[in-house]
Simulated scan of single mutants.
Amino acid sequence: MTFDHASVRTTLKPWGRLDLGRWASNQRQDSAIGEVSFDYSEAGGPDRLLLLKLLFTAEKLSIQVHPDDAVAKSMGMESGKSEAWYVLEAEEGAQVAVGLKRQLTQLEFRKAAIEGSIEGLLDWQAAAAGDVFYVPAGIVHAVGAGLVIAEIQQRNDTTFRIWDRGRSRELHIEEAVAVARLEPVSSRKLPRHITVERAELMSCPFFTLERLDLPAETFWELTASRESWALVVSGGGTIGSLTAAIGDGFFAEADRADIRVGRDGIVLLIATAASTPPIGLLREVPAKDRLKPDSAEVNSDRVGHNVIPFRLSIVSP
C-alpha cells in the first residue's frame, strides 16, 4: 500500500467557524465548520483504528465524556475513544478543560450536570500553539473558543454530552455518570526529542503522536510499518509523487515514501497506531542516493492548491 492523500469530510457544528483562515483555500464558508475529518478506505480493506481531525472553535464545545474500550464493547462497538489534542492556533485567552478540579461523587456530578454548574468544576487550562493534551476515555473535558486543534483519536465518535450551554442538542447525563472518572488528571504533555528532527509529542496504549520538523530543501525517507496518518501543519514539499501543503492529510500502512522538502521547510504531525514511537520511521537520504527531482519545482506557495477541498461531503451536527 502506497502513501496516499486522505479523503476529507467537513462537519457543520454550532460552535464552528465561518472563516478557516490558512486551513482552506476558500476561507469564508456559508455555514459554520467545526470539524474536518480525514479518512482512507479501500474495498475489502481492514477497518482503521484511528481518526484524524481538525477542530475549529468560535464558541465553547459541550462538556462531554467518551466510553473506554470495555464499556464500548459492551455496547457493541469495536473500541472506546481516547484522544489527543495538538494546538495549532490559539487566540489570546483560549482554554481547554481536561478532568475535574477535585474528586466528585456520582451524586455531586449528576447534580452539577443537571444544574449546569459542572463548568465551574472543570480544570480549565490556558492553551497556546504547540501545546499537547491527552484525554483518556472516561475523562470529562471541553474545548474552549478561539482554537484550531489537530485531534487524533481511537476510531469511535461516541460522545456523551453532559452540558451544552443552552443548545438544543440531546444530553446523555446518565450515560456520562456511568463512564466518567470523577477526578483530576495530568493531561498536558511535554515533547521528547527522539532526534533533532523528530519529537514524540505523546504516547498511549492506542497511538503515538509525533512532530517532524524537516529543514528546507532536504530529502528524507519515511517508513510506515503500522497504520499511520500525517498532517502538514507548516511549509510544504512532496511526499512520494504527491504535493504536500498546509492542511493536507495522508494515510499509509506498511510502506515507505520519499519526502522532498520545499524551500520553506515542512512540519508534519505523524500519528501511528502503536503504543511507542516506531523505530526507523525517518531517515535522511544521502545526496548520492537521491532520485532526480520532479520536473516541477517543489515549493510551499503554489497557486491554486486547495488545502481542504470543501466540495466533499458536509455533514450536519
Rank of each mutant, 00 (worst) to 15 (best):
D4G: 11
H5K: 15
S7L: 06
G16E: 02
R22Q: 15
Q29W: 01
D30M: 02
D30F: 08
I33Y: 01
E35S: 07
F38W: 01
D39T: 14
R48S: 05
L51D: 06
L55Q: 07
E59L: 15
V65P: 10
H66R: 03
A70S: 11
A70Q: 10
V71H: 04
A72D: 03
S74R: 15
E78P: 11
S79W: 06
K81E: 02
E83I: 04
A90N: 06
E92H: 13
L107W: 09
L107T: 15
L107G: 09
E108M: 07
F109Q: 03
K111G: 05
A112K: 00
A113H: 00
I114E: 14
G116H: 07
E119Q: 06
G120C: 02
D123V: 04
W124E: 01
W124C: 02
A129W: 03
P136A: 14
A145L: 05
T158Y: 01
R161P: 12
L171I: 11
I173M: 07
A176N: 02
A176K: 04
E183I: 15
E183W: 11
V185R: 12
T195L: 11
E197Q: 15
R198C: 07
L201V: 07
P205W: 07
F207E: 14
E210W: 00
R211E: 14
L214Q: 04
L214Y: 11
T223P: 09
S225A: 14
S228P: 00
W229V: 08
G236A: 05
F250M: 04
F250K: 04
F251A: 12
E253G: 08
A254H: 14
D258G: 15
R260N: 10
R260S: 06
V261F: 03
D264S: 03
L269Q: 00
A271F: 02
A271K: 00
A273L: 06
A274T: 08
S275Q: 03
P277I: 00
P278C: 02
L281N: 01
R283V: 06
A287T: 14
D289T: 02
A296S: 06
D301W: 03
R302P: 08
R302N: 07
G304L: 05
S313D: 09
